[in-house]
């Protein structure tokens, strides 16, 4: 299968690979996917509690090139956004940016799920209600 240049770039030079302290109250961690499905993403955000801005984002992904690229791109987009802005990231934006083929759309869905899971983890730590799973994916 042919990968787009952007997927190859993110896969070969992934941005923000790493681990944040998941015990910190300012860090939200989202772990989504399953090993037997061939994709597991862990996405972490570090939020400034004063401003609500995401100051750092890190990922680790077990998966194909498109899954790695989707999570790498997600961390780039998350940095500097407020938590509320981060919630507006749509999986189809990732599909478009990386030119993912139809069979790889699930990678973008997973990245969006990982963002929401990380935000919810942060919200719960801050004593807030988690965001409901209201949205249906494309």
């Amino acid at each position: 299968m042919a990968y787009s240049e952007k997927v190859i770039d993110h896969y070969s030079n992934p941005r923000n690979v790493g681990t944040l302290d998941k015990g910190s109250p300012n860090v939200g961690t989202g772990l989504v996917g399953a090993p037997e499905c061939g994709d597991v993403m862990r996405l972490q955000i570090q939020v400034n509690p004063e401003t609500g801005v995401i100051e750092d984002a890190r990922f680790k992904t077990f998966g194909c090139g498109s899954a790695i690229a989707s999570s790498s791109l997600a961390t780039e987009w998350l940095k500097g956004k407020s938590v509320d802005q981060a919630l507006t990231i749509d999986n189809m934006d990732i599909v478009e940016e990386l030119a993912l083929p139809p069979v790889k759309i699930h990678c973008s869905v997973l990245a969006e799920d990982a963002i929401r899971a990380a935000i919810n983890d942060y919200r719960v730590k801050q004593g807030l209600e988690p965001i409901a799973e209201e949205k249906s994916h494309h």
Binding site: G33, F62, A117
Partner: peptide, 21 residues
């Protein structure tokens, strides 16, 4: 880059994790 490898290295039994299919 693999979260599974990190978990394995931390001694977490991957079978015990509640995965989100």
């Amino acid at each position: 880059m693999s979260p599974l490898w990190e978990m394995f290295k931390e001694g977490i039994d991957l079978k015990s994790v509640q995965w989100t299919e």
